[in-house]
């Protein structure tokens, strides 16, 4: 259990993290989502007492991180795959970490096996790919067999097999009753792993909810209808006081429509339908909508006319939704977008 209470970090007059209050509960994967520069990495560094908060507090099972005796036995964290001295072998890197927390040296070989790095245990990590570095960082997080695990952008640099592996690892860890807290700027990634969602934008809490509620609250649902006879369908719908939206490809979208009712209506008018499908806006769209509101201070903003957003999320899809946010790596104390 991790509890954040009014956590705030300012760099000069820039506020990177702004009064964050939420709790990370055991037994589920909690996704920590936000655009680049939203303050995710800064928050995670403050959780580990690496950075001092300007105000507020973080408690790990009721204690400050710095008061934990042998912290790796409570909480393991992957912050940055490059936070490793490249001149040390993978084995020795883990050995010095294990020794500082009085974890038996035999555990080093175990975690190397878990992350699939046994064959390069005696190699200097300088030559590792980003994916191997991530695996070594994850091995470090697992060393103390902790009840709480934190991963900052763990899929970065991993190949598809590695991404699949880390997803299952996180689910397994949560299924064992552990607290798993994972950050990402990819909603599609979160949708596949997280059950609970904490969304921040510009350092502020935007949502703290279950994944299902998040989808229900933030996405629109509609019915898509396609017919070879659009004129008659439009008349039939108009007669039933339904106003469809005609999209570019000639199909109709009926906001909040009931597919059964529309199907019956079509049957009554003996209309041929080529498609009648309930649609949900994707999580990407929901996330974008949420953060766009916060970032740009628009009220109730819809991302108008984004048909791609309605496509069900596919694995590993990297749509353009993030393009509007300031670029750069999240780990820097970024100020985010100021518009």
């Amino acid at each position: 259990m991790i509890e954040l209470q009014g956590l705030t970090k300012r760099y000069g007059d820039k506020t990177a993290v702004d009064h964050l209050t939420f709790t990370v509960r055991p037994g589920v994967v909690t996704g920590f989502l936000g655009p680049n520069g939203a303050g995710k990495s800064t928050t995670m560094r403050m959780m580990l007492d690496l950075d001092n908060p300007t105000a507020g507090d973080v408690r790990i099972d009721g204690k400050h991180y710095r008061d934990l005796n042998e912290p790796f036995k409570y909480i393991g964290a992957l912050l940055d795959a490059k936070a490793i001295h490249g001149g040390r072998t993978a084995y020795n890197h883990l050995l010095c970490l294990a020794q500082s927390n009085r974890i038996p040296a035999t555990r080093v070989a175990e975690v190397l096996e878990t992350v699939g790095l046994s064959s390069v245990a005696q190699k200097r990590s300088k030559g590792f790919s980003l994916g191997m570095g991530q695996r070594l960082g994850i091995a470090g997080a697992l060393l103390g067999d902790p009840e709480i695990l934190m991963f900052d952008e763990p899929v970065n640099g991993l190949d598809p097999e590695g991404i699949h592996w880390i997803r299952n690892l996180m689910k397994d860890l949560a299924a064992q009753g552990r607290t798993v807290f994972v950050s990402s700027h990819l909603m599609s990634e979160m949708a596949l792993t997280a059950e609970h969602l904490v969304v921040i934008g510009q350092g502020r809490l935007l949502a703290d909810t279950s994944m299902a509620d998040f989808i229900a609250m933030n996405s629109r649902s509609y019915v898509r209808v396609r017919t070879p006879d659009p004129e008659r369908l439009r008349d039939a719908l108009a007669a039933a006081q339904i106003t469809p939206v005609v999209t570019g490809d000639g199909s109709f979208e009926i906001e909040g429509g009931d597919p059964a009712r529309i199907g019956e209506l079509a049957a009554k008018h003996q209309l041929t339908l080529h498609e009648l499908s309930p649609q949900r806006a994707s999580l990407e769209e929901a996330f974008m909508q949420l953060t766009a509101d916060s970032v740009e201070y628009h009220a109730g903003g819809h991302l108008a006319g984004d048909p791609a957003g309605a496509v069900p999320v596919t694995d590993g899809a990297a749509p353009q939704w993030g393009a509007g946010w300031s670029g750069g790596k999240d780990s820097t104390p970024s100020t985010g977008k100021e518009s």
Binding site: L48, L50, P71, A77, D80, A83, H85
Partner: peptide, 16 residues
């Protein structure tokens, strides 16, 4: 070298 490699964050996470 702890600073240049970023190891310092791992080290201080291990020994806060």
């Amino acid at each position: 070298s702890e600073y240049s490699s970023g190891m310092i964050r791992t080290s201080l996470a291990a020994v806060p």
